[in-house]
């Protein structure tokens, strides 16, 4: 146990010495890893902000209840009362079929068509705001109202939000792809860095193997190096994203002042930063592991 701790302490200090002894190559490696990580992290922050903005900007979704064409004024007022008394309904507006036709006539280009009709094809309708705009509440209300007598169809007017949601979903998939590709590149960067290190330390590895070093002993400092490289790269990425959002926020202050509002881009959260660092360190570790495994396979006795 003590020997094990000693080995780890030694691997750690060897790694730090290696990083400090070659500051320029360390810096470049960290920057490369940092940029590779900052791209998906930045996109993530952007998407999260757009999503949040959309949630605050988008109008509350509404339900439109269309009655059947044979529904009379009495049926309409009955439904009117039922909607008013419904606990999930916060507000509602009655649109009689005559008014709907008037509206349609006023819409450009439609007047001729409406004139040509020998009767009003439009049903009575109600536009309903729910007490809670959550999709599942809206959906519950929609299915319930649809079962009422003389109700032909209930439509959820959330198409705009749905479309945007679809766009965001595409964004998220793009983010996932980008993150995957760059994760591979991070593994590749550490793989190559470690491979070069192992080439320059080929003699040391050979000698230590000959005098009884286990694979673990040889692997350990390289794994540490890979993980620390990933970690530093992750820190660099956090720094880049933080600077970028700070710059954008500074620009937004002027803009939002003109509009008399307060707009701000949210930073990468502590939790997301922590997972970014963990992820980066893990990938660095993985790249180093693969590199060492490949090298060690070549020095086995034949």
């Amino acid at each position: 146990m003590k020997a094990w701790l000693l080995h780890h302490a030694r691997a750690g200090s060897t790694t730090l010495r290696k990083l400090v002894r070659a500051p320029l190559s360390t810096l470049f490696n960290v920057v490369v890893v940092g940029i590779a990580l900052a791209l998906p992290a930045g996109l993530y922050v952007g998407l999260a902000n757009v999503q949040k903005a959309v949630r605050t900007l988008s109008p509350e979704p509404q339900l439109t209840v269309f009655l059947t064409l044979d529904a009379g004024k009495a049926d309409a007022s009955l439904i009117d009362t039922r909607l008013k008394e419904h606990p999930l309904v916060s507000r509602m507006r009655y649109v009689p079929r005559e008014r709907a036709l008037e509206d349609m006539k006023r819409a450009s280009g439609m007047a001729g068509i409406v004139e040509a009709l020998d009767r009003n094809p439009l049903p009575d309708a109600f536009v309903v705001d729910a007490s809670d705009p959550a999709p599942d509440v809206m959906e519950r209300l929609r299915t319930e109202v649809a079962t009422w007598p003389k109700v032909a169809h209930v439509q959820l007017d959330a198409e705009w939000a749905q479309r945007l949601d679809a766009v965001l979903k595409v964004g998220r998939i793009a983010l996932l792809l980008l993150a995957t590709v760059l994760a591979f590149s991070l593994v590749a960067i550490t793989f190559n860095t470690i491979r070069l290190q192992m080439l320059t330390q080929r003699e040391e590895i050979e000698v230590t193997t000959l005098i009884g070093a286990t694979d673990g002993f040889i692997r350990r400092p390289f794994l540490y190096y890979g993980a620390v490289l990933g970690l530093l790269g992750g820190l660099a990425a956090c720094g880049l994203v933080w600077s970028a959002t700070t710059v954008v926020n500074a620009a937004l202050i002027d803009l939002s002042y003109l509009y008399g509002a307060r707009w701000e881009v949210a930073q990468l959260s502590w939790r997301d930063s922590a997972s970014l660092l963990g992820f980066a360190a893990g990938l660095g570790w993985l790249g180093a592991w693969m590199s060492v495994a490949r090298h060690l396979a070549h020095v086995r006795p034949r």
Partner: peptide, 9 residues
């Protein structure tokens, strides 16, 4: 080196 490898104090 051999002693470090074997984890000597």
């Amino acid at each position: 080196l051999p002693l470090n490898i074997q984890g000597y104090d």
